[in-house]
Nucleic acid binder design. Structure first.
Length: 564
RNA sequence: GAGUUGGUAGCUCAGCUGGUAGAGCAUUUCACUUUUAAUGAAAGGGUCCUGGGUUCGAAUCCCAGCCAGGUCACCA
């Protein structure tokens, strides 16, 4: 990408060539017989034991005939001690004097064989007897240093660079890895929990002809051979329920969903959800199940059911508080929404500083009230239950109140992290609810609702009573790792394209190509070789010198064009 | 989407009301056999995000744009 190399990049390329000249392959193919990791070596330290380690060299402290270097592998860091005469017992000291001291740089992968010992200062170290170059690094890593007080100097913190070059972030910032290891643990704990109950992990289509299961703007793509539009899924729900229709007792999927909406620190265009559907259950059962699952996750991650999130300590110990949406609103506003008309709700919103507009139905108004007045107050895990029917088109009507549905959301730290239903399995009711949604969105909504006819057909064959639950994995991981930004729990959060490298014109490219093949060239010879018209040649040369790529050196009568 | 802060050496950052661009680490050279932010000595290294404008003169002031952060709004 970058045509111009920095001084340090040039030096490293020269070192690469010198290694080759010494007969050392800087990128050897051979297996390297690693037999330990740095943390194992430190934890089960045996003085004098011989081990073989490999990793990146993260620092070098050269003191004449002896040196210290820091080796970083997947598990941690270990100091290695290299003594010239022990590494090179014979006459030839090249491996130490040239290779180690001059040709190796911070960031290079090396393999070392040696014996464990403790330095005079008391640091567990490895005395190197054999040194192998495993991979040369051509770009300098940021140098992050920690002093004796544990204070970090020159930390690599620029979020843009950290996210764009996550590989560098992972190498240089110890602790970033931990977040992702925890992420994996969260998911594997859930998976084990589901598998132990006999539920089946499944995969359903990401490319869908009808994106259903949620109200959100989808990404659209196009299939050439079929010549039809396809949508990236916004939810898994409708496909997983088809599998319940098909006779599985329980199915679950860890899935990437995609929503073509705004981005902020809790929204990435692609995100991970887990959805699970279990037949013959209802949402009360699902609350117990969800509690148990989350408590297990917290225990697996922290060893106890508590964790610190920002200023708060959150306890995931069962049972979680349960409160109906109606009571929650009553608790924080004193307002009783039950039996209120749309007009009454609308007026109350206006009177209480909530932006309400004519397009909002009852459900939406209630949702606004909850979102505005209640949501942020639920720091400790709380199930909010029994949502209005209007805002839950896939959820079964409440067994005792036809205005409500059997739905719960789990709120933690003031945010929703899970959502669950007693799933609607009455195909005629489902069709009516879809049509009702369509009417609502026609009232003035940019989110087109799709009616999935095949899903309705599946329901008509009969779906057993089922409870389903979806949980945002990214947000759960944010809680479990005490991160306030979703970008910190995604390896590669979405970013705008990086600025393009300097665009070169065709004339400039042609000149540069010839020049690169010949390195420096006499100006007239160059002009003749390139064979451009006088005008193009002139413009091309001017452009290149403006970009700082070439320079013309005048020496008496001869003019030489130099590649910079 | 709105307003806000930032973009200077490989990295972290300084640079006053406009006057030849600085430090630490890293790099190069030299010294040094248990150091640890190793140390001592010397040297090199810049598209000051991009494009316009004002000016004798712009990293600095003005306008526009690009990228990012945090804030708010919208959105599940």
């Amino acid at each position: 990408m970058s045509i111009q190399l920095s001084e340090q990049e040039i030096v490293r390329r020269e070192s690469l060539a010198k290694l080759r000249a010494l007969g050392i392959n800087p990128y050897p193919a051979d297996l390297f017989p690693v037999n330990a990791l740095t943390n194992q070596v430190k934890e089960k330290f045996v003085e004098g034991k011989e081990v073989v380690l490999a990793g990146r060299m993260m620092s070098q402290r050269i003191m004449g005939k002896a040196s210290f270097a820091e080796l970083k592998d997947s598990a941690g860091r270990l100091q290695v001690y290299i003594n010239r005469d022990e590494l090179c017992p014979g006459e030839d000291k090249t491996l130490y004097n040239e290779v180690f001291k001059k040709l190796l740089d911070i960031g290079d992968f090396i393999g070392v064989k040696g014996t464990l010992f403790t330095t005079q200062v008391g640091e567990k170290s490895l005395k190197v007897k054999e040194l192998t170059v495993l991979s040369k690094s051509l770009r300098p890593l940021p140098i992050v240093k920690t002093d004796e007080d544990g204070k970090v100097h020159d930390a690599f913190t620029d979020p843009e660079m950290r996210y764009r070059q996550r590989y560098v972030d992972l190498v240089v910032n110890d602790g970033v890895k931990e977040v992702f290891i925890t992420r994996s643990k969260v998911m594997s704990t859930m998976r084990e929990f589901f598998n132990a109950k006999g539920y089946l992990e499944v995969e359903t289509p990401i490319l869908q002809p009808v994106p259903g299961g949620a109200a959100a703007r989808p990404f659209i793509t196009h299939h050439n051979a079929l010549d039809m539009p396809l949508y990236l899924r916004i939810a898994n729900e409708l496909y997983l329920k088809r599998l319940i229709v098909g006779g599985f007792d329980g199915v679950y999927e860890f899935a990437k969903d995609f929503r073509n909406e705004g981005m902020d620190k809790t929204h990435n265009p692609e995100f991970t959800v887990m959805e699970i559907y279990v037949s013959y259950k209802d949402y009360n059962w699902m609350m117990d199940f969800t509690e148990e699952m989350i408590e297990k996750v917290a225990l697996a991650v922290h060893g106890k059911p508590e964790c610190k999130v920002g200023e708060n300590v959150i306890s995931f110990a069962r049972p979680f508080k349960r409160i109906s949406l109606t009571d929650a609103i009553k608790e924080f506003t004193g307002f009783d929404i039950s039996g209120k008309t749309e007009k009454e709700l609308f007026d109350w919103c206006r009177a209480n500083g909530i932006d309400a507009d004519e397009s909002m139905g009852k459900g939406k108004l209630i949702d606004e009230i909850f979102g505005e007045k209640c949501e942020k107050n639920y720091i400790q895990p709380t199930f909010i239950t029994d949502y209005p029917k209007e805002m839950s088109p896939l959820c079964k009507e409440h067994r005792t109140n036809p205005d409500l549905t059997e739905r719960f959301e789990l709120m933690v730290n003031g945010k929703e992290i899970a959502n669950a239903y007693s799933e609607l399995n009455d195909p005629i009711d489902q069709r009516e609810r879809f049509e009702e949604q369509l009417r609502l969105s026609e009232k003035g909504d940019d989110e087109a609702m799709f009616i999935d006819q095949d899903f309705l057909r599946a329901l008509e064959y009969g779906m057993p009573p089922t409870s389903g639950m979806g949980i945002g994995i990214d947000r759960l991981v944010m809680l479990m790792t005490n991160q306030s930004s979703i970008q910190e729990v995604l390896f590669f959060p979405q970013m705008k394209l990086e600025k393009k490298a300097v665009e070169l014109t065709d004339a400039e490219k042609a000149i540069l190509e010839v020049l690169k093949a010949n390195n420096n060239m006499d100006l007239t010879a160059l002009k003749n070789t390139v064979g451009l018209s006088g005008k193009q040649w002139d413009a091309g040369m001017k452009g290149l010198s403006k970009h700082g790529l070439v320079k013309v050196e005048v020496n008496g009568d001869s003019k030489t064009c130099v590649l910079k």
